[in-house]
Design a protein around this nucleic acid. Structure first.
Lengths: 203, 203
DNA sequence: GGGTACATGTAATCAGTTACATGATTTA
DNA sequence: TAAATCATGTAACTGATTACATGTACCC
């Protein structure tokens, strides 16, 4: 029996897709899109087209299987294979050495806004605070909808939230709480910039 | 006189380079690399090769000028043009609508770690806490070095930190403080996961 | 004087993005 | 039945990354 060879070219996004399919299977690209947009999409964003192309690649690599619906739309339905599950497990067992890559557009602008006038800095801070407030509100809404979920009949639950163990659900909720904490901090930070724009380097 | 036409294809990274040159000019790719790695690189990372190719592109677009050193290494020295400054100002005046794109590898793994056993979750949390602690320590070191900077002769200051107004320096330090706050929060978050791994979704 | 770390780049590749486009379903 | 919106994709392009490679300075 040959050793399971790990394809070397799986990107983090590949693992997102793999993990999402493992969670939601059997599932269509569009369902993945919906699930991603309210969960992982918040800390690992990518365009929806990836959710159409990436599963195909993964299927070619034997990590997913694809079936076509017979009726009407003939959508693609993906499920994870044992090889896929092994690949996912191997990735999880190899914790990332490097931390967050934050890619914050607003901070970038703030960093360089010393080249412009104070009004520009203020505008940046306002825009960022608003954006983070919106996002925080979104997270809170997500949390509320998870709580109401418990009252839904099981048949409707799956389509919206997938099915999995309580532990898996707890992990997902932990990331949601991280997001809330982060957004609260961000709102505070930008509010402080608005109220007292930095002026002296040691202020 | 023709209107200054904004080239449509400047990426955020382009603006990073533009801004860094505005700050440090005249400057070489290597100096940019050093400056980026202790500042913007922390929330907008990219490989050093970008700092060799991007300035050339910007020079072609008329936003930077390039001169060659006469002696020894004949390094490229870049400075910003008026057009470049205008482009930078225009970018700053148009605050980003969308907030942070967090791209956190560790959170991604946590999100899916419900598919593995609790030991895996623990390992992820440990690795992440260590990574964030390292990064926090780095930020604190940066802050200390900024504080000692004031005692350096002006001639040495420039090479290490660039030259600019106190307001610009204050903006940069604000982003540093954001980083510290964020890292402290992250360390706390991962420590909590370590100590009490999520188990029930509403725990 | 040779090893090692710093410094400086080039070139090819490709994942990810952008742009486009059309089908299906709901709503008014 | 028209408009709007949701759903589903394809294809081209290119910025970013990876891999490679060499030069220069300093240290033992």
């Amino acid at each position: 029996m040959l050793a399971q060879q790990r394809s070397p070219s799986l990107s983090p996004t590949s693992y997102v897709v793999l993990g999402l399919v493992a969670w939601m299977q059997p599932t269509t690209p569009y369902d993945l899109k919906r699930a991603a947009s309210r969960t992982v999409g918040n800390f690992w964003a990518f365009p929806h087209t990836q959710l159409y192309t990436e599963p195909v690649r993964l299927a070619e690599a034997g990590l997913l299987t694809e079936q076509r619906e017979e009726t009407g739309r003939r959508r693609r339905l993906f499920s994870i294979t044992d090889a896929g599950r092994a690949e996912l497990a191997a990735w999880l067992a190899e914790p990332a050495g490097e931390p967050t890559e934050v890619r914050d557009h607003g901070l970038l602008q703030l960093f360089f806004s010393g080249h412009a006038d104070p009004a520009t800095t203020l505008a940046i801070a306002r825009a960022q605070r608003a954006a983070h407030e919106r996002r925080l509100e979104g997270y809170l809404a997500t949390e509320r909808s998870i709580n109401t979920k418990r009252e839904l009949p099981a048949s409707r639950r799956g389509a919206l939230f997938g099915n999995s163990t309580p532990r898996a659900a707890a992990m997902r909720q932990a990331t949601l709480r991280f997001g809330q904490t982060f957004e609260r901090g961000a709102v505070e930070f930008w509010r402080a910039i608005e109220e007292a724009p930095p002026d002296q380097a040691d202020g």
